[in-house]
Simulated scan of single mutants.
Amino acid sequence: MPPRRRGARLAGRLGTRLAPAAVLGAAWLAFGQGAAHAVLSLLPAMACAGFAWGFARTLRHGREPLIAHYIRFDERRDGAECAVYARRLTAVWAVALALAAVAQLPPLGGGGLAWHLLPLAALLLLFLGEHVVRSLCFPAGGIAWPDQTFRAILRAERARHG
């Protein structure tokens, strides 16, 4: 890869990692502590919305659903056998994360840590429950364990980013 392109890619990655801090700092400077707190309280909802978009955009025509991409890197699953399941599961995650984003929005009266933890707990239950469903739908691959899923995701991301 040419050095100029590599530098642009690195700058893009750095910018996406620093963007939330920059928004928070700008709000603090422009409007004081109240605005910074308001922006900070929106970060969980923005994160869930970003993940929802990440899943949903792979459902467009001609694209490979995100979970189908990850299944290709799972040594115990057959991507062709799981294709319909992977597309549907990607859609389920897109909707679940979008709902979690809405649920993460702070109520008018404030909202504490429990307000943000409840949707995250529901997502964790969905993640764990899906492994049970996958084990039952595709018994030839054996029991689907969360660590197996994490390893497949890591292999897929390493392959994507070289």
Rank of each mutant, 00 (worst) to 15 (best):
A21W: 12
L154P: 02
I153N: 05
R88W: 09
R134L: 14
L136Y: 12
T16K: 11
H131T: 03
P146N: 06
G142S: 04
A140C: 08
T16G: 14
R160I: 07
F73V: 00
R9I: 09
C82I: 02
E75Q: 13
A11K: 08
R63A: 09
P44L: 04
L40T: 08
R5A: 15
A38R: 13
C48V: 05
V132Y: 05
R4M: 14
A49Q: 02
A94H: 06
G62K: 00
R60D: 11
L118M: 12
P65I: 02
L14G: 06
P2F: 11
I153M: 13
H61T: 14
H116K: 13
G110S: 07
R17L: 14
R72P: 03
L125M: 03
G129W: 00
L118A: 15
A98C: 09
V39H: 03
P119I: 05
L29S: 09
L59M: 01
A35D: 03
A152T: 02
G142K: 10
A22T: 13
P119M: 03
L118F: 12
R60P: 10
A11H: 02
A144N: 10
C48P: 05
M46L: 15
Y85T: 10
A86H: 08
R6T: 15
E64K: 09
W145M: 03
A19E: 12
V102P: 03
P3L: 06
I143K: 13
A30S: 10
Q148L: 02
Y85L: 10
A114N: 12
F127W: 11
A27E: 08
S41C: 15
R9A: 13
I67T: 04
P3E: 04
G25N: 08
Y85N: 04
A156F: 05
Y85Q: 09
F51P: 05
L66P: 04
Q104C: 15
G142W: 04
P146T: 01
L66E: 01
Y70A: 08
G15L: 07
A21Y: 12
L99G: 13
V95K: 06
G162A: 13
G129H: 01
E64P: 01
E64N: 03
S135C: 02
H116G: 11
P3S: 00
T58H: 12
G112S: 06
Q104Y: 06
L117E: 06
Q148V: 00
R4H: 15
G15Q: 04
V39R: 02
P65G: 00
G142P: 00
G7T: 11
L59H: 03
P107R: 11
E64F: 03
W93I: 05
A98K: 06
I67V: 09
A68P: 01
M46D: 09
R9F: 12
P20K: 02
V133C: 07
A49P: 01
M46I: 15
